[in-house]
Write a protein that binds this DNA or RNA. Structure first.
Lengths: 199, 199
DNA sequence: GTTCCAATTGGAT
DNA sequence: GATCCAATTGGAA
């Protein structure tokens, strides 16, 4: 895990040398969001998805599949980013922005979404400020864009827009949360001081 | 013309009391961008377009149709905003944002686009600044959104987005133009002073 | 508690 | 010269 992407339940394209774990593929069904009529995309996806599944089912994620006979993963695109099928099926596949936001939520935790942006670039409207935010993991993001674009019929720029605003919204929510925490701490300190004054 | 919309070549839904000019409708073909399978939209559009054409061909715009046997107008939506067919046909109907920008250009002059915005609201990111910009003529904008959405298959929010950025871009260009003018004036003054120094 | 709206920005294309 | 990109914002929905 490199890029600040502390992913709770997704995995992306694995390294070539995936340590040859003795993964039992009979336990794993990889469903794919791909156009079967586009053979090139399809075969790339198939390969990547199987590799990703192999990594996903490896030692690190053992707790997630031990005990189940079958774990279903859905690969989102050529980079082989996979997401548990249950999370995919829980999504209402009608509104592109909703799908985008849910997928992001499934593959990044809220802290990551709040502290990253689509591009990692500073806002041109606030260039004087230091930019604290890095870019989201690019292969994963590319797969989200691919999947939503391909299967919702919306433009890639729509998906990118949805990602941008999702990160912005998570950032605002995080700020609120931190502020509330800070205020609670101050209140605690104040009460502490009051108690000491009383003695 | 009320709303700061100095429209060069478009007209919108007319007042009820259109002064009953003896317009010769045989000279006028009103083509309509409407779904003929949606009777309600269609008939609203038909009525509005005919009224708009009547106004469009009235005294104020006499110069535009005198001498031609036939003027073709295209109505964009339920509000009956019409645009000359030639301008419509000159557009590449493939890219939604291009279509939107061209339509705006056809119905508002650049000064209007530069000094107005889609909503007329101040930017939430710069609320301390006074807001100098008013909203674009709403019925016209609604017709653009209607037309592009209906015939390009893109979402209304895409069209709105395109309008927003078109106005922003025109505003920037205007600022540049004004700055250049100012600098040219200053340069002129400077040379004037130099000339006086020499004498 | 979340998502949506859309205005503004400078640089990239 | 014109268009596109996308980060940030506060309040509305």
């Amino acid at each position: 895990m490199s890029n600040g992407d502390s992913n709770p339940s997704s995995s992306t394209i694995p390294k070539e040398d995936a340590e040859g774990l003795p993964t039992d593929f009979s336990k794993c069904a990889v469903l794919m969001l791909a156009d079967p009529h586009d053979p090139e995309i399809h075969s790339n996806l198939e390969l990547a998805a199987m590799n990703a599944a192999k990594e996903y089912l490896g030692e690190e994620n053992e707790s997630k599949w031990k005990g189940t006979d079958r774990i279903e993963l859905i690969s989102l695109g050529p980079n082989g980013t996979v997401v548990p099928a249950a999370e995919i099926f829980a999504i209402d596949w009608n509104l592109p922005t909703q799908v985008t936001r849910k997928l992001l939520h499934a593959m990044f935790d809220r802290e990551t979404l709040a502290t990253h942006t689509l591009s990692g670039k500073a806002s041109p409207a606030f260039q004087h400020r230091p930019n604290e935010k890095a870019a989201l993991d690019q292969p994963k993001v590319a797969d989200v864009i691919h999947a939503v674009h391909k299967f919702m019929g919306c433009s890639e720029r729509d998906v990118r827009g949805a990602i941008t605003t999702k990160c912005a919204d998570e950032s605002k929510m995080r700020r609120k949360r931190l502020k509330r925490l800070r205020e609670a701490e101050e209140e605690e300190e104040r009460q502490e001081r009051e108690k000491q004054m009383a003695t």
